[in-house]
């Protein structure tokens, strides 16, 4: 098989129609601009999220989930779109999520953020992208004839949503509860994040005045015994 065979005959037509590659390129371009303007594609922001010092991701993610849920279900109810649900397999998502989070803490880039960081000029993101391709190939090699296959299909619920599992007759109850909790959470996390930013800048000024490293603007300090 040659490299040029990866373009099948339908690809050329697919580039023109909005349903496939062309639409993906448009959506990806807008997404890239948004990720960059929200300063999300930076190692410092992701690593700071896991160190509980930088809550940028939570402040972006909470309105995203609130408004996204309301918009998607509203457009589904008026019949403009159809849901495209992921499969729920509890053990696969549990173990996969833990492994994914561990890798995210080390590398600092998730698949979409790595692409955005590469566009911003962070060259280590390219190495991470190569690593993601390598990890996918490793999974494919170990998939058949191993225990993984059984883990992946252990508790397979299929393509379901929460209202279907709990037999709630109207999904807007779930959405209302979720949006209410998200709104409270967003107010709290925004206040805490602003407080952290202000206190860090005060510490920065004081450390620059008295501390030894004026140039870096950063202090490293050992955690004292609590």
């Amino acid at each position: 098989m040659r490299l040029k065979d990866t373009f099948d005959a339908g690809t050329i037509e697919a580039i023109r129609g909005p349903a496939s590659l062309y639409g993906g390129l448009i959506v990806g371009f807008i997404l890239g601009v948004i990720l960059q303007k929200g300063r999300l594609c930076k190692f410092d922001v992701i690593s700071g999220m896991f160190r509980l010092q930088d809550f940028t991701f939570w402040r972006v993610g909470t309105p995203l989930l609130m408004f996204g849920m309301v918009l998607i279900y509203f457009f589904k109810d008026i019949g403009a779109i159809e849901l495209y649900l992921p499969k729920t397999v509890i053990f696969a998502q549990l173990f996969g999520g833990v492994l994914f989070g561990a890798g995210l803490a080390i590398a600092g880039y998730c698949p979409a953020i790595a692409a955005g960081a590469l566009g911003e000029g962070a060259l280590d993101a390219f190495v991470t992208m190569a690593g993601i391709v390598g990890g996918s190939m490793l999974y494919a090699e170990t998939y058949d004839g191993s225990k993984l296959d059984r883990i992946v299909s252990f508790i397979d619920l299929g393509r379901v949503t929460f209202p279907e599992i709990f037999l709630v007759f109207n999904h807007w109850f779930f959405i209302l509860a979720f949006v209410f909790m998200c709104a409270l959470f967003l107010v709290g996390i925004s206040m805490y994040d602003t407080f952290l930013k202000a206190s860090f800048s005060i510490i920065d000024k004081v450390a620059n005045k008295f501390g030894p490293n004026k140039a870096a603007g950063e202090i490293e300090r050992r955690k004292q015994k609590r």
Binding site: P86, K87, V89, A92, Q93, F95, G96, G97, V98, L99, F100, G101, A102, G103, L104, A105, I106, A107, G108, Y109, C110, P111, A114, D124, A125, V127, T128, M129, A130, G131, I132, V133, G134, G135, S136, L138, Y139, A140, L148, I151, V152
Partner: peptide
């Protein structure tokens, strides 16, 4: 970065 990327790729395939 490469090792973390491998873990991210493996985990994302496992979690679909």
């Amino acid at each position: 970065a490469f090792v973390g990327g491998m873990m991210v790729g493996f985990g994302s395939r496992l979690a679909m």
